[in-house]
Computed example of a mutant assay.
Amino acid sequence: MDAEAALAWLDAIIPPQTGEQLRDLQKVILVQVWLGRKYLDIAHSYGCTEGHAKDAGSQLWDFQEINYPILWGGQLARL
């Protein structure tokens, strides 16, 4: 699975589980972290602070609460 496939998968399962859509920054973070980029680089290219990017990323990673653990390093743990 590549980053775009992972994004499509999460974009399909998060709304029914949480009632919320992924925000644009969260989508960017998912793809860029998958590709090995750092939050500071992501923030600069997105036009926000590193802290804001980290906060958005933290909300994305908190998705684990509905039992879809995410392992980074280029892999989704459960599909």
Rank of each mutant, 00 (worst) to 15 (best):
I70G: 01
S58A: 11
G74C: 02
V28M: 05
S58M: 12
W34E: 10
I14V: 12
W9C: 06
P69V: 03
D11V: 07
L60F: 10
I70F: 07
L40C: 01
G47E: 05
H44S: 11
L30S: 06
P16G: 04
R78W: 00
Q59A: 09
A3C: 09
A43S: 09
D41S: 14
W61T: 13
D55N: 14
A56H: 04
G36K: 11
I66H: 14
H44Y: 02
A8W: 04
L22M: 15
W61S: 13
L22K: 15
S45V: 03
A5H: 08
I14K: 15
Q75K: 14
I29R: 09
R37D: 06
L76N: 06
P69F: 01
P15D: 05
P16Q: 09
K54T: 01
G47S: 05
F63P: 02
I66C: 09
K54Q: 11
L79V: 03
T18P: 00
A8T: 14
H52N: 13
G19W: 06
H44L: 10
G36W: 02
Q21V: 03
C48H: 01
G19C: 05
A3H: 12
Q21Y: 05
E4P: 00
L35V: 02
R23N: 09
W9N: 12
D55E: 11
E50D: 13
Q32G: 03
R23M: 06
G19Q: 12
Q17M: 07
A8G: 11
W34G: 09
H52S: 10
G57Q: 11
Q59K: 15
K38Q: 12
D55Y: 05
A12P: 01
T18K: 12
Q17F: 00
A77N: 05
Q59N: 09
D41P: 01
Y39N: 15
G19M: 07
Y68P: 03
R78K: 08
I14D: 08
V28W: 06
D11R: 15
G74N: 06
G36C: 03
G47H: 08
Q32R: 15
I70K: 14
Q32V: 00
T18V: 01
Q64C: 03
P69G: 02
I70M: 11
E65R: 15
A6S: 08
L35R: 15
A43Y: 04
A53F: 00
L71G: 05
C48S: 10
I42K: 13
E4G: 03
G36D: 03
E50W: 01
F63V: 13
A43P: 04
E4Q: 14
L7N: 12
G47R: 13
G73L: 08
G19I: 05
I66V: 11
Q32E: 15
A53H: 06
G57A: 09
N67P: 00
M1A: 07
W61M: 13
D55V: 05
A53Y: 02
A8K: 15
S45N: 07
L30W: 07
L10E: 04
R78C: 00
A77V: 02
K27H: 01
D11M: 07
T49L: 03
